[in-house]
Structure formats: C-alpha cells, structure tokens
Design a protein around this nucleic acid. Sequence first.
DNA 1: CTCCATCGTTTACATGTGTAATCGACTACG
DNA 2: CGTAGTCGATTACACATGTAAACGATGGAG
Lengths: 128, 128
Amino acid sequence: MSDASEQPERISEAEQAVMEALWQRSPLTAQEVCEQVCGPRGWSLNTVKTLLSRLVTKQAVATEPDGKRFLYSPKIARAQYVGTESRRLVDRLFGGRAAPLFAHLAQAEALTPDDIAEIEALLKELKS
Amino acid sequence: MSDASEQPERISEAEQAVMEALWQRSPLTAQEVCEQVCGPRGWSLNTVKTLLSRLVTKQAVATEPDGKRFLYSPKIARAQYVGTESRRLVDRLFGGRAAPLFAHLAQAEALTPDDIAEIEALLKELKS
DNA sequence: CTCCATCGTTTACATGTGTAATCGACTACG
DNA sequence: CGTAGTCGATTACACATGTAAACGATGGAG
C-alpha cells in the first residue's frame, strides 16, 4: 500500500503566499500566481516557480499539464492548513488549551468590539 | 544613541524550550537549564549552551556572572513572546482578525466545554 | 604546582528557507 | 530553418535552525 503515514510537510511562510493565490482561484499557471504575489512580495517569476516546485514536492499542490505549461492547484485545503498551524501555536504557547489564547488576545486588546460581538454570536451557536 | 528601533529577533522553537525553562525559574545556569530540557528533548548540554548563546545574541536572555559560570535570565517576558507569536499567526492566517481564529477553533472542535465556559467568563469581564 | 573537570566560545555541518540565475527543451515568429 | 522567448528543472547561495564536537581558559583536587 502507498505509505499512508506520511505526515504533511510544513509549508513555509513564503510558500503560504503562493498557496493563498491558489486557494483564491485555481488552477493557475506560474505566471498567474506571479501576477497575484510577485508585486506585493517583490518576487521574481523564478522565485514563484521555485516555491511551486517545492510545494509540489511537499505534496501540497498538484500539477496538471496544459500544453507546454502546467496548471497548479492546491492539494490541501486552506482549512486544513489553518487547522494545523493554529493547533501548533496553541500547543506551543498555551499547552494545547484554546482558552488561554483567547484570554491573551483579550488582554492584549487584540479583540475589537466587532470581534467580541462575533465571538459572542459564535458562542451562542455553539451552545444551541 | 543606542539603536532603539531594533525589532526583537525571532525566537525559534528550540530556543523557546530554553526560554520556557528560564520563564519558570531564573536565573539558572546552563547546567540547570539542561536538567529541565535535555531529558525531554534528548539534547546534550552543548546544545543548550549553543541555544543560550544565540538567545543572548538575540537579546532575549541576560547573563550575570557567578564565579566562573554564568547565570541566565530572560530579558523578555513570556507574555510579550506569546503576544508577538499570536499576532503573527492571526495576521498570517486570519487577516489580523481574532474572531475567525476563534471560529476556526470552534469548528475544529478544538474548544472543550471548559474552554467555552472560560471564554464566556472572559467575555463577561470584558463587557463589564 | 600540575592535571582534570567544567565554563563559555568557536567551529561544524546538515537541513530548511528566501531568493534567484542558469540550463535545456520547445515553440512560435520571421 | 534558425532564433528568441518561455517553460519547467537544476543549480546556487546566503542565512536560520537544530544539533553538537572541538577548543581554550580556569579553578579546584591532589
């Protein structure tokens, strides 16, 4: 059987920028990805290509040939990525408990009144 | 004048393990730090010393001579570290908004009933 | 006084990451 | 048909990180 125990390789921050482009719309060519990210990040097309290759190696994006070029699409969902990264942080900083993270954000005034309202709404949903 | 615009260098994961020891109790010698972390992480004393040096370079820990050896203490508070790291994540993954993070944790069922209760309590406090 | 244990410091080395230039294949233009 | 542009692939290179061995000073045991 094909090794099912492979844990997904980490996606670096630069790589994430590329993933974000693909999560917004896919499949895209390397060119198109570059159009999304090269400007803001000040990258060259080559950089994007390198990142795409690495993401392919990491099994995070899939390629589909389209004539002489490739179309790239995400192979992992953004929610999954966000999930692992969030959990990593919560584990590393708060012993795996989410409440302390929330407490911290609250104390640090990182919560806008809007945030608080939204969270209240979510809580209400959770309890219903 | 001493450069006040220095933004604190990032503390890596391995380095954080060392910081945790110092945050729990300080000052400590390299030996003592090792006693806290070498077992769990399978590190050698040398590794701890390297990490301590790097942390000193990064201005994250202070040294105080004690005979022939040094005593190390954290120069940055844990809350500050936790703050920057949390914000980084929220920025990277949730566009800087904390509510989506919370929503994600909720959806991912990363919130225990205890968490929810705690958060409700915190909310109540925030609103009072 | 000499030698060993122990410090902190210096050096090492593999891997990951950021950022790209170069290369070989191919295709479209002239 | 040759050649310039474009692709992905290969190679490059500096810096960060994880992990540690080697080195030089030094203080305490004998």
